[in-house]
Design a binder for these strands. Structure first.
Lengths: 219, 219
DNA sequence: CAGAATTGTAACTATCCAGTTACTTGCCTA
DNA sequence: TAGGCAAGTAACTGGATAGTTACAATTCTG
């Protein structure tokens, strides 16, 4: 999610002055630590160790623990928005477009469980950090606007029913993708099944796509 | 979620020996504290204050902070299972039964945001506390079995399509209800809308019910 | 009314942890 | 090659916190 050249410097000699790379490895280590343990459980010393640097650097670049967490959250949003911009669904048939958006979202969550965890952490804290971020505008998703166009063409073609709020469709996709993965631990225990077996994941993906299409289907 | 006679004893004199009630007020205060702050952010002294008792009592009855948290989690599961047992969907028309289950789940989550938060906390910790609970069996939901019967009758009547895993329908309902409320803070910031306005909540409830029914509809 | 049980008080311990300080080391460039 | 800059070291401070201790106070029942 951060610059791919970022790598912990554990077991390495100093490689020279590179503030951008130092910040990147700190951010990556902090992402893992905050995602695994939340704000209250994350430890500054552990983040420094995981990054292969020292905590003087953390305070030098990010100010304090919360400043580091905010940078992690902003980077996480930047990453998903960057990935979303690579998706262009407006040039496809409506049903295909919607399927593609649904699969993209599912696979993004599947490949980025740390993003799910960070969202849960931020909601636990009532989004106070997100609200205070000057980069808020960058976190908006253009996909709802694109989705609006897709739904409109679907209505025109007679495959989608009219009167659907695109935000609701976006939230339907996100709901089905997020909940399954976010709650995989408790659900696996409660239902006595391993929800993260490859077959189950593939089955849920098909169920997700089918449900989203069914929810907008013309009668 | 806990015994209704539980009430904080703040500002009250000692009201006599009542270990059941003392434990109940501690559990209620602890539920609020763990739900609002997670395990790492919750404070034992604050729980005692919120309960109107002292922390000697917390350690006396629950052993330690984690023991208290586990008791909170078990009580939360007991409460939703108790509420679920009052629901009988097997005697209704399949579509009505499914609608009722969907609305019940939505309203349960709406009325119990602390349950949502505790589930997120427990998943952050990979359900290690849940796994270790001797009350695990009590946490299973009988509703999947009932749902299986409802789906079967729906297929027989020709209103539902065949081959649907009842667990997937249950997860669909839970997904749509859970995600919206769990992420209400970040989503409200990102999309610039207050997702918890009464009109939005009512609209989402209708969308939830419609989507669940559409997902099982016979073709 | 005495004793048992529940609940309370307040000080305490030991540990943890965010953040700071004062310096040192190493790299790179003019 | 000297100096500036990035990065590192390690001790430290101050405060927070879970959990404990040793007793006291209150309630209620046999």
């Amino acid at each position: 999610m951060v610059d791919s050249k970022a790598q912990p410097m554990v077991g390495r000699q100093r490689t020279g002055r590179d503030p951008v790379r130092t910040q990147a490895v700190i951010l990556e280590a902090a992402t893992a630590e905050f995602a695994e343990k939340g704000i209250g459980g994350a430890r500054v010393d552990t983040i420094a160790q995981r990054a292969g640097t020292n905590k003087r650097m953390l305070y030098h670049y990010f100010g304090d623990k919360i400043g580091l967490y905010v940078a992690v959250l902003e980077a996480a949003y930047a990453a998903i928005r960057s990935a979303e911009r690579k998706l262009d669904i407006t040039q496809k048939e409506p049903e295909e477009a919607l399927s593609e958006l649904a699969r993209f979202t599912w696979h993004y969550f599947l490949d980025h469980p740390e993003f799910i965890s960070l969202l849960n952490t931020e909601n636990l804290h009532r989004a106070v950090h997100l609200k205070g971020s000057p980069r808020l505008r960058e976190m908006h998703s253009h996909l709802v606007t694109e989705l609006e166009q897709v739904l409109k063409r679907g209505v025109e073609l007679g495959v989608f029913r009219a009167g659907i709020d695109p935000l609701n469709v976006y939230l339907t996709i996100a709901s089905l993708g997020f909940f399954y993965l976010s709650n995989r631990h408790t659900l696996s225990v409660i239902f006595g099944r391993n929800l993260t077996e490859p077959e189950r994941l593939a089955e849920w993906e098909e169920h997700l796509v089918r449900t989203v299409l069914a929810s907008v289907k013309a009668e």
